[in-house]
Design a binder for these strands. Structure first.
Lengths: 155, 155
DNA sequence: ACAATCTCGGACACTTTGTATCCGAGAACA
DNA sequence: TGTTCTCGGATACAAAGTGTCCGAGATTGT
């Protein structure tokens, strides 16, 4: 999985506690990561409609929807792409003993197993929202988001 | 995920129906894939103890254990490595507002969510064995494994 | 109305991982 | 004992991920 997913998730949690747009450069400074590369991830989130970009002098990024309606799966798919990790090559239809195409109406057992496992993974990520992550941070580290919110406003 | 996982799984299913060692080159010919690259995957399976290599003139690969005791997860971890897809960089401890290390006794909410999802994925793969895959092939395509078994013996 | 300044957006190099290949070491058979 | 076949690790090639840059566009203030 792409490493930028972690950055994107942290940024979404941070954006929960701000109401004014936050510039990408400032978010990168907060996390001490590459500003240019973080911009790429934020672009992906913007393209997926999870966050909204505001251009101009006081521009930046803000959440496009309610934190409770954005799931972790949404962020992962936006950054890493919606393609599944396992893709069946249908090698059962290749080679000297290839099974005829008319007998391949359903996916093979291997493909079904992999698809089921990825479905379970996807479901687990869909059951957690950005709001859940933010509330967890608020309980384990009280006042952290408030401090970040004020810090983002400062010059 | 590495594409060689599919090849390795198909080879394990095929090895279910043979009792004599099957050479890697013949398995590659059966599936119409790169012989050299398939050899790499079989080496990984051999190193993990899932299959056993027999050198010499009538050598090849055979299953090291009962098909029911080898899970799909075993094969995936042997080929793709046991490392999890998501690795937490602990970026909460970086930047100007870094949380102190003494407050980071437990993994953050993001890391826990990802770990839980991967656990569900791993559990789904662990619940399916090579014997299950072979029996499925035997029911949807009767006689296929028998034909492969005889073909592997031929010159 | 206009210019200045700050923002995002996509196009451009570099590094790491995955893909594919080859030849040497070792064991069984004649 | 020699031959032939096998696996095993070390070696090139390709693709995707990582990181960076500059131009297009909008807002703010004059």
């Amino acid at each position: 999985m792409s490493g930028g997913v972690e950055w994107a998730l942290h940024c979404c949690v941070v954006l929960t506690s701000v109401d004014e747009p936050a510039p990408a450069a400032r978010l990168a400074q907060l996390h001490d990561v590459s500003p240019s590369y973080l911009a790429k991830q934020l672009q992906a989130l913007s393209g997926a409609g999870l966050i909204r970009s505001v251009q101009g002098k006081a521009g930046g990024y803000i959440l496009a929807r309610s934190p409770g309606s954005i799931t972790v799966l949404d962020v992962v798919e936006a950054v890493d792409g919606p393609a599944p990790a396992f893709v069946c090559t249908e090698i059962r239809q290749r080679g000297p003993l290839a099974t005829p195409p008319e007998a391949c109406t359903t996916p093979c057992a291997i493909a079904r197993t992999m698809a089921g496992a990825e479905q379970a993974w996807r479901e687990a990520l869909r059951s957690v929202s950005i709001a859940d992550l933010a509330s967890d941070v608020g309980s384990t580290n009280p006042g952290a988001l408030a401090g970040i919110s004020t810090w983002l406003r400062q010059v």
